[in-house]
Simulated scan of single mutants.
Amino acid sequence: MCDLKSPQLITLLEEETRDHMFLAYERANWLIFRDAYPQLLLYHFSKLENRPLFRSLDRWGVSQFMIEEWEHFWVEKDGDRLLKALIINEQNVIQEPILKHPLYKKKVFRSLLFWMEECLHFSTVLFPTINGNLYGSSVTSFRNVDARIDFGKRLAHILFHTDLFPHFLLFARKVEHTGSRKDYERFMKKPFYSQTPMLRWAFPIVEHHIHTWRDWSQEAVIKDEWFMDSEPGKSVHLTEWFVQKQIQLQWASLMKKI
């Protein structure tokens, strides 16, 4: 999101376009956090009291699907299934209010810019390390809930990989998160600064409200394939790829100025 305030994207994109993209991702992040926080809080208190308290989640607008999955986890201790359920839930939580919202659908997700982002694989999540290596994966067909669920499972596979997780955890503990790419670019062998500002320098605090809420799981069909494993497949080491993409972005910005 802070890339939207970088010199390159300020040059390439109109302010209105950048504002719409920011609001779409900001709203999606808020909806996911609003949904996930009470779940983890109730799990914490369930452990303290040694009994499941998940029926109370409906007071915070958490789906019936997730209530049942937490109760299943409490009995079966199936962490892999719970992880997939959380991914399934969060992507369905944002489907109607974000991906199908008339404004975001027209101005963001059906725009030529977004189509080009997907084709050029700029829609990528990266996991940094303090040794300068970057790992991650890209998503295409972002508007499709099945594709985003598959993407979430692939990211989880990378994040919790036995060889990689200790490096990601060390970075999270050692490096203060500011929202700027400089947080991890400074550790690269050839430091590469893409000039993304810190979050609080780039955007104000945004207040959100829920006007209407619908339980997605009461209207959707829960697909068996959503619980199947998804592995990254291609190489997940993206350090060199990242450098090339940033160079492409800088060249595009320069050509636009010319």
Rank of each mutant, 00 (worst) to 15 (best):
G233F: 06
T212Q: 13
I222G: 04
Q246H: 07
W241F: 10
R200H: 07
M198E: 14
K190R: 10
F187S: 00
F203G: 11
W216A: 01
E231F: 14
Y193C: 10
M198P: 07
Q244V: 09
S180E: 03
S235K: 10
P191I: 01
M228H: 00
Q250T: 08
S235W: 11
D215Q: 14
P204M: 10
S253K: 07
E240C: 12
Q246S: 09
Q218E: 15
L254A: 07
D183P: 00
W226E: 06
F227W: 05
S253G: 09
A252P: 09
V206D: 06
K182N: 15
W213H: 14
K245N: 06
W251E: 14
W241I: 07
A252T: 00
I222Y: 01
G179F: 02
S235M: 08
G179C: 04
F203Q: 04
M198A: 12
H208N: 03
I210T: 13
D229I: 08
Q244N: 03
F192H: 11
E225P: 05
Q195L: 03
L238R: 12
L199I: 02
W251Q: 10
P191T: 09
P191M: 10
F192A: 10
V221Y: 05
F187L: 06
Y193D: 08
M228W: 11
S230R: 12
K223S: 09
S217E: 09
K234N: 15
